[in-house]
Write a protein that binds this DNA or RNA. Structure first.
Lengths: 203, 203
DNA sequence: CCACTTGCTGACCGTGGAGTCATCAATTAT
DNA sequence: ATAATTGATGACTCCACGGTCAGCAAGTGG
């Protein structure tokens, strides 16, 4: 019988593993209903260890949100800035695709957690606003500006509120979170919105 | 010194009073973080009494949601059906006004509660879907159908997803719930959406 | 005025979960 | 080898909160 140690020390990997397990648990049950014991079990770790890396449950929560957020955002915004496509092609292609993936992505979970718990974690809301919302909206505005300069969009396009593009994504997220069973063609919803927007701003 | 009784018996009013207090408390702290003791205090009542009228905290939660929902919906949908205005006038007038009031109304609070707690109360989600979402969407569809029959809208308007009208309302709700401080002209957002939609479906 | 009903109170109970810490054992240093 | 270090464990504490219930007093009927 080989000498199996009861555990290995893995100082480097633990925090990430615990945060990932916590994300799963929060996603399933929400913040309040999640037990630290359960998080520890999922991570294959004892409850006490969780407290070595995260001083409180709230700390863990914040780490989870920051974690998901930073992992996703940069690549996305990079894409927008480095494309060689025409504005319309980009919108109808990569951008639409990205929007359509949002409702099924971890970002949707984070949105739910923030809506549910945001009030009691204002600094987390600020963090999310600065790193996701503000940057996302700015990227859209820059993109439109570029389109105007290239002559692809009418100058009046500058007046467009970027939130008009986001609204159907938001609705689709909420719809799926609440009414997973009731069908709604969220892909078509976003396509229609883009059709309308383009019709209005194209040169 | 007048003989002040310690309390009055008010069998009829208690349930409503308690439910209203609970709504306030849930709105401020969310379901999980709300203490029955706190609800009772707000209602000026002892904790025990709460349990006389609502057997569990969950019961109370459901009563609160149903309460808010039924108080609001009927009048709204009545308006849509009984108007004498042209379709465009109705949309730009009463409907837009209603949409603009939504984000500040108790419905927004209910939406937050449902997003946060919906998973663990599927029957409540169903109730909300049947009584608010389904009826609301049906009303919009009927209204469009009527517009088509009157020749105000193109027949293709029938293909329009009613959720396109709701999306900016949803986004505005969430925005205000999370980012009360960061400004966003939600009224203009809805107006723009209506402009775009009308441009597309008007005969 | 008294007897009776019942709306209402608040002290109490049990549970479960956040957070602690004495101790163990894997790893590293000597 | 042996000692020192520290990652990791899990039994334990503490207490907050949902839910109970024996008793009290406001209302009611005779």
């Amino acid at each position: 019988m080989p000498d199996q140690p009861k555990y290995q020390r893995r100082k480097e990997d633990r925090p990430r593993e615990i945060a990932d397990a916590a994300f799963e648990a929060f996603a399933e049950k929400g913040y309040a209903a999640t037990r630290i014991d359960d998080v520890a079990k999922r991570a294959g770790v004892s409850k006490g260890l969780t407290y070595l890396y995260y001083k409180t449950k709230e700390d863990l929560f914040k780490a989870v949100v920051r974690n998901v957020v930073v992992r996703r955002i940069d690549s996305l915004i990079g894409d927008v800035e480095s494309t060689e496509l025409s504005s319309e092609e980009f919108i109808r292609g990569p951008l639409l695709g990205f929007m359509q993936r949002m409702p099924g992505s971890p970002i949707a979970i984070v949105v739910r957690l923030l809506i549910a718990e945001g009030r009691r974690h204002p600094d987390l809301v600020d963090y999310y606003y600065d790193n996701v919302v503000a940057r996302g909206l700015a990227a859209i505005r820059d993109f439109i500006e570029r389109g105007v300069e290239r002559g692809e969009f009418r100058p009046a396009a500058r007046e467009l509120q970027p939130q008009l593009l986001v609204a159907p994504v938001m609705l689709s997220m909420i719809w799926r979170l609440l009414f997973a069973d009731k069908s709604l063609d969220t892909d078509r919803l976003m396509e229609s919105q883009i059709d309308m927007l383009l019709a209005q701003i194209k040169a």
